[in-house]
Amino acid sequence: MISKKVILTGSFGVGKTSIFNQFLFQKFSDKYLTTIGVKVNKKTVEAKGQEVSLLVWDIAGEVTQDKVPTSYFLGASGIIYVMDLSRPLTFEKLDSDIAYLEELLPGAAIKIVGNKKDLLSKEELLEAQQNISKKLDAITSAKTGENIPDLFLNLAEELV
């Protein structure tokens, strides 16, 4: 079995902890409790016939990624950058944030995720996607769990 460090990051209130809880415990809560510092947990998935232990770091949200302590990112093999599809403000810094992360962790797999799909109609979802400067790797709903397991599985396969 191999172990990989995965970072969940993005602006505050985008649903990082909800994705974390949905992936690890298949649970969702409507209560918003802001993450203080960082929370770490792990889950083992099978990717390409191999067991991969994903050590997931759920980091407190920051408006821009350069405000997150750099030591949290060190040694990470994968990054999940989360945005709230219902709040355009959360994808305004996408280009500069991704450029910063690519420079900080060259070689790390980065997944760009639009979350809170359940809050948008089809038309609103299309409109949101048009306003996002990069192609989304996954459109998820931490509330319903839609596309969450696939997101981590795809990432694990990329890391193997």
């Binding site: 172990s3 460090k5 510092g37 960082v38 929370k39 770490v40 947990n41 792990k42 232990s53 050590l55 770091w57 302590p69 030591s71 949290y72 060190l74």
Partner: peptide
């Protein structure tokens, strides 16, 4: 879980 302990220790140390 020792993996989680190691992760959290590192997070505290980093912080």
């Amino acid at each position: 879980d020792k993996d989680v302990v190691a992760g959290m220790l590192t997070a505290i140390k980093s912080f």
